[in-house]
C-alpha cells in the first residue's frame, strides 16, 4: 500500500472513531503539518499549539474528507494551513504590523529543488517562474506565509489599491500555464 493510500484509509478509519488509526495518521503526517504551521507562524510554541488544534479538527471532521474531492495530503495540509493562518490573523489583530517577521525569504527547499521533487510541484514552480518578478512572490507569500493583501502590498511595495488586480492577473496566467 502506498503512503497516500494508507493515509486515505487511515482518514476513513478515523472518521469511524478509530483511535489507533488516528495515532498512526499522526505519526505519518505530523512532521509535514508541523512544517506548514511553523513556516506560517515562524514560532515553534505557536506552531505546536496549532499542530494540536489541527489534529483535533482532523479527528472531528474526518468524515467530511471523502466528499471534498481532494487528495488526502492536500486536505490535511489545507486544515493545517488554515488553522495556522487563523492563529496568525488573531495574533496580528492585536499586534503592531511593524513587528511582522520578514518571512518571504524563509527557509525550506528552494523552488528549484521542489521542481525536481514532483510533477505537480514542478509544473507550478515552472509556471510561477513565468510570472514577472516579483509577482511570483505575491502568490508564494500568500500561500506559503499566509500574507494578506495589506501585508503583500507592504512587502512588495505595491500600492494596496493595485495589488489585488495585480495578483488576480498572476492567478489567471498561472491557471493558463498549468492547463497547457
Amino acid at each position: 500500500m502506498s503512503t497516500v493510500d494508507e493515509i486515505e484509509t487511515l482518514i476513513g478509519k478515523v472518521s469511524l472513531g478509530d483511535r489507533q488509526a488516528f495515532s498512526r495518521l499522526y505519526d505519518l503526517t505530523h512532521a509535514k503539518l508541523f512544517g506548514v504551521s511553523l513556516r506560517i507562524l515562524n514560532n515553534r510554541a505557536s506552531a505546536e499549539d496549532v499542530l494540536q488544534e489541527t489534529y483535533m479538527k482532523i479527528w472531528r471532521y474526518a468524515d467530511r474528507y471523502a466528499s471534498k474531492g481532494t487528495s488526502p495530503m492536500t486536505w490535511l495540509i489545507t486544515i493545517a494551513r488554515n488553522t495556522a493562518i487563523d492563529k496568525l490573523r488573531t495574533r496580528r489583530d492585536s499586534e503592531d504590523i511593524e513587528g511582522m517577521a520578514e518571512t518571504l525569504a524563509s527557509s525550506g527547499p528552494t523552488p528549484e529543488q521542489v521542481a525536481v521533487a514532483s510533477g505537480e510541484a514542478g509544473r507550478i514552480a515552472h509556471c510561477l517562474e513565468q510570472l514577472e518578478e516579483p509577482r511570483d512572490k505575491a502568490v508564494r507569500g500568500a500561500y506559503l506565509e499566509g500574507l494578506s493583501y495589506a501585508e503583500l502590498s507592504e512587502k512588495l511595495s505595491v500600492p494596496l489599491n493595485t495589488i489585488r488586480t495585480w495578483l488576480r492577473r498572476s492567478l489567471i496566467s498561472l491557471r493558463e500555464c498549468m492547463e497547457q
Partner: peptide, 9 residues
C-alpha cells in the same frame, strides 16, 4: 498544492 513541497517537514 504543488507548492506544498516547499513546506519543509
Amino acid at each position: 498544492s504543488g507548492m506544498d513541497a516547499e513546506f519543509a517537514a
